[in-house]
Amino acid sequence: MPDTFTFLMDGRSVVATAGQSILEAAEAGGIYVPRLCHKPGLVPWGACRICTVRMNDRPCAACTQPAVPGSVVENDTEELRAYRRTLVEMLFVEGNHFCMLCEKSGNCELQALAYRLGVTAPRAPYFFQARDIDASHPDIILDRNRCIQCARCIRTSKDLDGKNVFGFLGRGTAKRIGVNARVRLRDTEVDLTDLSLDACPVGALLRKREGFRVPVGDRLYDLEPIGSDIERNSP
């Protein structure tokens, strides 16, 4: 194939096609780059910076940075793991993440990343901000306490569902997820079949009456770190 090339990632040669992001090329080659706001099928967003790698010694988001022929990329180094750990810790102290009572626990990408990165407790003090819950919809709940503002629901609703149900309101630490209706989630055109409901990496957007169906031990990240499925494809 004429338009393929290789670059070096943590000492391994990775094949990429023109225009492919570092993250996608690495994933195809069985290398996991930690990420939160990126989800296959969505246009890369580059918001969470968890996927930060060093390309030719320059930090960049692996989800938005196209792979460059012959470049040297660092991914799984102690320095980058420390950056990612700090980012994950900041997300934990900024929101209200009560894993012990959360329906998403065990299947949560934020929690799983913290496990993978070895976070036992965040070093920064907790914010404990008051945030709203929108439980108005009969079948869907939006709990802003757990939202990490990855915009995956916003982008999925807009780009894949063609609906534009969600959006951001406010700025800075007051930034929060809103719904495209004057009042509540139940007044939007959100539907149980929407792909946006499966886009949330945490427990902020959930279908009601489905929590705790899978017993502890059988959940996604109970026994294996997040990214293990990608690493199993390693040649």
Binding site: F92, F98, L101, T120, A121, F128, Q129, R131
Partner: peptide
Amino acid sequence: IALGDCATMGGIPALRNNI
């Protein structure tokens, strides 16, 4: 040693923290 979620992050009692 901080043992358990209440010791490490406040846990269930900390649900009152934003009230």
